[in-house]
């Protein structure tokens, strides 16, 4: 967790100048993490593709704003989260719906200790997406961030503007809600 990443060095070295090769190296290192977050947060491969493109382009244009206080991965995540949340906000405004079922799953028997069994890995992506779509944006985001082993709880807390303790508590409930709903998708 929280190991130094090569991208951080790249950013520090080229703080005043951003070459195509360095940008390509940064993209190679972090594209999967950003694409995966966008894919599972937005739930649409085409939108995830557009979002990933836009996030890296923003990063390219704003490199002078990267202050090196966080890892470059965290900085990219921050851009990606803002971008995805803005997209979601505009959809919600057009198409208001509520995820009121979260509360029901939270009160259902805890399944976090029992393993999540998957028979067909080819259908896994669909089941995961269905499950994440049913959770609140907050839970979805926390689960996706904690799945990235490069991020510490402190970094996740900073990304979602909460304390590390609050993140731990919410993650416990989010995992429970995920497990309860995942079983229903079998």
């Amino acid at each position: 967790m929280n190991q130094p990443v090569a991208g951080q060095k790249i950013a520090a070295d080229v703080a005043s100048h951003w070459t195509a090769a360095e940008f390509a190296a940064l993209y190679d290192e972090h594209n999967r993490a950003i694409y995966y977050l966008a894919l599972r947060f937005l739930g649409d491969p085409q939108k995830a593709e557009d979002a990933t493109h836009d996030v890296f382009l923003k990063a390219f244009r704003r490199l002078d704003q990267f202050r090196g206080e966080a890892s470059i991965r965290t900085w990219l995540y921050r851009i990606a989260i803002n971008h995805c949340q803005n997209l979601c906000q505009s959809w919600h405004n057009r198409n208001i719906h509520a995820n009121s079922e979260d509360a029901v799953w939270e009160t259902s028997p805890a399944k976090t200790d029992s393993p999540l069994r998957v028979l067909e890995t080819k259908e896994l992506g669909q089941r995961i997406q269905q499950t994440l779509d049913a959770l609140s944006d907050e839970y979805r985001l926390l689960l996706l961030l904690v799945a990235d082993e490069e991020l510490s709880y402190e970094e996740i807390a900073a990304l979602v503007d909460q304390s590390a303790d609050a993140v731990r508590g919410k993650l416990h409930r989010a995992r429970k809600a995920f497990a309860a709903h995942f079983e229903k998708t079998a």
Partner: peptide, 24 residues
């Protein structure tokens, strides 16, 4: 058949098996 001990493990597996479109 596969078993994942929790959602973190499941999502990590999913992320590792998700390919990024080369068009990006």
């Amino acid at each position: 058949a596969r078993e994942f001990s929790n959602s973190d493990e499941l999502l990590r597996f999913d992320a590792a098996h998700t390919s990024v479109p080369p068009e990006i």
